[in-house]
Design a binder for these strands. Structure first.
Lengths: 198, 198
DNA sequence: GCTATTAAGATACGCAACGTATCTAAAAGG
DNA sequence: CCTTTTAGATACGTTGCGTATCTTAATAGC
């Protein structure tokens, strides 16, 4: 008694496959993300997937990046430290185990595939985040909490790098203690130091 | 005409397997590190390897960590900045593509294996490095280049974290520009900021 | 030195997933 | 309506997995 279902195509089918891949990623992790399992879950077959993505890594990346919410709400709590805590918390929320596994798996598997690597780096760059940090710092300077500072690109990218490093190495979720540690022992001192004349 | 070779045992055999695994890692990357390939290269057979390591991840980790040189030479160039540049350069030299692939592969594959993860984290902690940083900073304070500062653990670990993050994301080797960028835009400002009274 | 124990090395297995080729029939387009 | 596209099914050979079995070499105990 095979269920008769109309045959999907194009965008609709593609999304169904990505959804299935995402489910698989969540339930079985990157290691359990097999093309056959995704095909079965999506109710389709392997060739359909291979027609669209060249490898498991490319599929995982597509499934994961499609799930990254834009998250453009501005942060403005009134003080630099609590702005930073909110910012880091937001970053940490995204940097969960699935992200870590996906990044790790893609890097291990597609090290030589320039196309896949490019997508991954693009996905990890996140300029809006760097811009949000810059805004926070400028507001703090306007309030007089910091001397006027031009934040170097690298310093604006640092929060994301720090949280990602934390997420990739430790296994469990990132704790509040970790976040306050990063803010109080690294990022706030850095911001103060950037405003200091040597 | 089979070459007749005396049958190796214990330490000698173990080292031969680790050497073969390392070779495989260097030539084919983590993705190409198969138990069968290692067994063939080492001139032994799969069960011999499985008797010693529970998984590919464990074997890769053992092969890699055995190759990490101790590198305990103290750094003392006379100035804080050049000490830091030397330190970061030394770290970067170790953080090559093989390390990145190995870390990524182990994380992706052995996410649930607490034993393997523990070994990896142990291997990445590197307290001697943090101590070296602390010494450099204290010497700079003695010279008056910095105000007296107690370096938080997290700040002492930061150099390694930064370089590792850099190595994992970019593909090629870490350039001198990257190192000077990290020192001048992140770590030196951080050290200045740590000595500042808020 | 003889003997008992340990472990190396060879081989063969069933299994899972790979990536590809082939075929059909359903959908979309003119 | 007829053509083009492509989803979906299936089957295939291949690779590597992890385990089991067997032999025989190396070692250790006495």
């Amino acid at each position: 008694m095979a269920e008769i279902r109309s045959r999907r195509r194009g965008e609709e089918l593609e999304q169904a496959i990505l959804d299935a891949a995402w489910d698989e990623l969540c339930t079985s992790g990157y290691a359990g993300l097999t093309i056959e399992a995704v095909a079965a879950r999506a109710g389709t077959s392997k060739p359909v997937i291979y027609r669209r993505w060249s490898s498991r890594a490319a599929l995982a990346l597509a499934a994961w990046s499609g799930r990254q919410p834009p998250n453009t709400q501005p942060i403005d709590t009134g003080s630099l430290r609590s702005d930073l805590l909110a910012m880091f918390t937001r970053i940490a929320r995204r940097a969960d185990a699935i992200m870590s596994q996906t990044i790790a798996g893609v890097m291990a598997e597609a090290f030589r595939d320039p196309e896949v690597i490019a997508i991954l780096q693009e996905q990890l760059r996140s300029t809006p985040l760097a811009e949000a940090i810059t805004r926070i710092v400028h507001r703090a300077a306007d309030r007089g909490e910091l001397p006027p500072t031009t934040l170097p690109d690298r310093a604006a990218r640092l929060p994301l790098d720090l949280v990602r490093g934390e997420a990739i190495l430790r296994t469990g979720p990132i704790t509040d203690e970790t976040i306050t540690g990063i803010v109080d022992e690294i990022y706030l001192p850095l911001l103060r130091g950037l405003g200091t004349k040597l």
